[in-house]
Amino acid sequence: MLTVRLYMLQRVTALLMAPLVVGHIGVMIYAVQGGLSAAEILGRTQGSVFWFSFYGLFVLAVSVHAAIGLRTILHEVTGLSGRLLMFFTWGTALSLCVLGMRAILAVTFLVRGVS
């Protein structure tokens, strides 16, 4: 079920995710160690193009990577193929993308007035 293009997409997104995961874990440790409150975290993320780009790229990579991986598992376990498998792949990618982007937008550009 994996063509060379899907295979490469999954590997390229894995390469992208590796440094982003390290960065994410670093940020989490920093935030917890310093005892930052939600308001202080949001104060740093709101309006930040950097954090929007950092996590935006992360969400895009995860959406593509996970959708291809789940597609392979689903096909090999259930035998699902053809259009249904294509709908599942796109559905998974779009769902993850929408959920992730919604969360990123919430902490970068949409939320206001948290104290």
């Binding site: 994996l2 063509t3 060379v4 899907l6 392979t72």
Partner: peptide, 9 residues
């Protein structure tokens, strides 16, 4: 070997 049933599986 690069199609749906190819080596990448």
């Amino acid at each position: 070997v690069s199609g749906v049933g190819g080596c990448h599986n």
